[in-house]
Write a protein that binds this DNA or RNA. Structure first.
Lengths: 343, 343
DNA sequence: CATTGGCACTCAGTCTGGGTGAGTGCTAAT
DNA sequence: ATTAGCACTCACCCAGACTGAGTGCCAATG
């Protein structure tokens, strides 16, 4: 069993190493922290910690640095929750307070997180949850140019312009409009697409202008489905990652590539969704992905009204300030979910 | 006056340096290129080029590397236009062929450019040109929840949900709808916003539900204006920039920060818009911006139907393959403007 | 038995100096 | 104008000495 003091030593090592980027030795610890014991005693504790693989020595004789396992213990048991400063709370309010559309909001969010944590920040764009078609609108922009608009019950709009082979009269258009709306209003998107496709394929219509219109509507609905199931990430603060380049033994190239890939992070978010903690942390090699072996990911779920639960995160070197990053990620996620949710 | 051969030497130096990242000496030149003269002669030419500040020596005695001015001369007079390979043309077709919505198209474009050029790629999101209100739609989502949709003649849609203080009847809603459409249909966005605001401020209505609706419409129109004047950039290929890190004397940190700022690049695009060449190139310190002093920007305009002319670019170290980057940027811009424009 | 002081040992980092070679600049010959 | 020859410069590499932070172990101590 590891003694209480040994854990305190681990905490000291993590804190000092995060602060200084230098392996920390027994002497430094007794100087900077007031343990009531001598350096030799600390050394004994450190030998213990090393045996447990919580710390390691970069070279035979130098200070120790925390291992992934050491950081894990720190995060799980030792990290004091550091409340955000007043200035930081203020920043969240002013940055996110004046929300406009979703893209803008998420762009602000991700920039805010990058700024608060001095790390690379990522936000997953949340999908709409269980969307139904509310209304289909058809507008003749010109004689043979038709604007087709599909509005979902979540207020999401998808539009597309189609070129018809023959002009269409207002009367015809009205007829098709009524028919389409009768067909799809209130339907789930996928069902609506099928229904429209079936109608367009109907023999008696097949070569008519109306069928063209129906096909256009179907394509627009399909587009909307596509937009909603496209899992996208918004990223900011790449400069912060470059700034911490020295914390990576290889280069940050792999890390940046992995993040640009997006798919890896999306997969990771999926895995993290099952964790019970409000803020989930993946440390170093706990990320099975090659590119993230030297990074930690601090992530939390958030939800916006009418949208699926989604995630935001910061990504940085394992040598990061977990306390404040966890606090910042949690605060932003909560702000998004509560302040904006109850609005 | 600089002799013909001296210029050929400059070309050789640029090409070799771009290929090898190593200062190139007189001996290397006579070995790799078949000038019919000895190294000493080349040295004389090099002395000339150095006098003209087209090349410079990193240390007293080592090979020469091109200066910004040298690259400029290379680009203006010496760079052979390198046609894209069949594979590259193919890539453009398959990547951009199946276009869906604008965001998706631009995301593909920027990724494609990053891949083709192995540089960081940027695309400016084009605004709609001279937009008018086509139609305003009001939908009661619930008794006191109103969905307000503004559709422009370019097919751009902006929607927003408002909470009313009192329920509104279908009849009232119809009346307001007609009134609003009469007011704003066909108007430019800015005028429409003013007109609606005036109507809402009208004394006899001021405290009515109708006024609330009008204000909602006004806000939605204003949102649409905002979205359209928001100049945004889409970026991809940051990993490529990191890969060329050694080409930067400082660190790439400043470069990445500058690009994340966006505003600098947008300003640069504004300046480049006046250039007469199809593809504009800014080399090193020609970019007055601090952060881009060691980078070159290769940029071209493109236009999509119904949108303002906009720009795309690649950004990389001054030591880049100008011939192929220029070719790639031009090809992508043309593809966007022509293939998609005539669609 | 935990703690401590003492001490030998290890080893990364730094500094030094000589050697090497690529490459130049100059000069005199062609 | 071009060339060969030659002295010179200077970044780079290597090996060796030195330094100092830090460890590991042991014997002494309360």
């Amino acid at each position: 069993m590891i003694s209480e003091r040994s854990l305190a030593v681990l905490r000291a090592i993590v804190q000092d190493y995060v602060a200084s980027r230098e392996p920390v030795g027994s002497k430094t610890i007794v100087e900077r922290h007031s343990f009531g014991v001598s350096a030799a005693t600390i050394r004994n504790d450190m030998a213990l910690l090393e045996e447990e693989e919580l710390i390691a020595a970069p070279h035979t004789s130098s200070g120790r640095i925390p291992t992934d396992k050491g950081y894990r213990m720190f995060v799980d048991q030792l990290a004091a929750m550091r409340p955000l400063s007043a200035a930081q709370r203020q920043a969240i309010d002013t940055f996110l307070g004046e929300s406009s559309d979703l893209d803008e909001l998420l762009a602000r969010t991700v920039r805010l997180m990058a700024q608060l944590t001095k790390q690379l920040a990522v936000v997953q764009v949340p999908n709409f949850s269980s969307v139904r078609v509310q209304h289909v609108e058809l507008v003749a922009v010109a004689a043979t140019r038709l604007l087709c608009i599909v509005i979902s019950d979540a207020g999401q709009v998808e539009q597309r312009v189609t070129e018809l082979t023959a002009p269409i009269t207002d009367a015809e258009l009205s007829a098709v409009r009524s028919k389409v709306n009768a067909l799809v209003a209130g339907q789930m998107l996928a069902d609506a697409a099928t229904a429209v496709a079936a109608a367009a394929g109907d023999a008696e219509l097949a070569r008519s202008t109306a069928a063209q219109v129906l096909r256009a509507v179907g394509a627009t609905i399909t587009d909307q489905v596509k937009v909603q199931t496209s899992h996208r990430l918004v990223v900011a603060g790449a400069a912060n990652l470059v700034r911490t380049e020295q914390d990576f033994s290889g280069s940050i190239l792999g890390v940046i590539e992995t993040i640009e890939e997006q798919v890896v992070l999306l997969k990771l978010f999926g895995e993290m969704a099952t964790e019970q903690h409000e803020v989930a942390v993946r440390i170093g090699r706990e990320n099975t992905e090659q590119g993230l072996a030297e990074t930690s990911v601090v992530s939390s779920a958030f939800s916006l009204p009418g949208r699926d639960i989604s995630r935001l995160a910061v990504v940085g070197p394992t040598r990061m300030d977990y306390s404040s990053n966890i606090a910042a990620v949690r605060a932003v996620a909560r702000y998004l979910s509560r302040a904006l949710g109850s609005e």
